[in-house]
Amino acid sequence: MTSPLEGRRAVVTGAGRNVGEAVAERFAREGARVAVVDIDPQAAARVAKALNEAHPGSAVPVTADVSSADDVSRLVETAWAQLGHVDTLVNCVAITDRPATVLDLADDVWRKVLDVTLTSAFLTTKYLAKKMVAEGQGGVVLHIGSTSGQFARKNALAYPTAKAALYALVRSLAVQLGPHGIRVNTVSPNKVGSPVGTDAEPENRERRNLVGRACTPEDIAGAVAFMAGAEAGFITGTDLLVDGGALISTGD
Rank of each mutant, 00 (worst) to 15 (best):
A50E: 14
N52D: 15
N52V: 12
N52K: 10
A54W: 08
H55A: 12
P56W: 13
A59R: 11
P61V: 11
T63F: 08
T63P: 03
T63I: 05
S67Q: 07
A69L: 10
A69R: 14
D71I: 02
S73K: 15
T78A: 13
T78M: 05
A81M: 01
A81K: 10
Q82N: 08
L83P: 01
H85P: 14
V86L: 03
D87C: 11
T88A: 14
L89T: 06
C92T: 14
I95A: 01
R98K: 05
P99N: 09
T101S: 15
T101C: 07
V102L: 15
V102F: 11
D104C: 09
L105E: 04
A106Q: 12
W110I: 07
W110A: 08
W110N: 06
K112T: 14
V113S: 05
V113I: 04
L118V: 13
T119Y: 10
A121F: 04
A121G: 10
F122D: 00
L123W: 02
L123C: 04
T124K: 08
T124W: 11
K126H: 13
K130Q: 14
M132L: 11
V133W: 03
V133I: 15
A134M: 11
E135M: 09
E135P: 01
G138P: 04
G139E: 10
V140C: 13
V141L: 13
L142I: 15
H143G: 07
Q150N: 07
R153N: 11
N155P: 00
Y159C: 02
P160V: 12
Y167C: 01
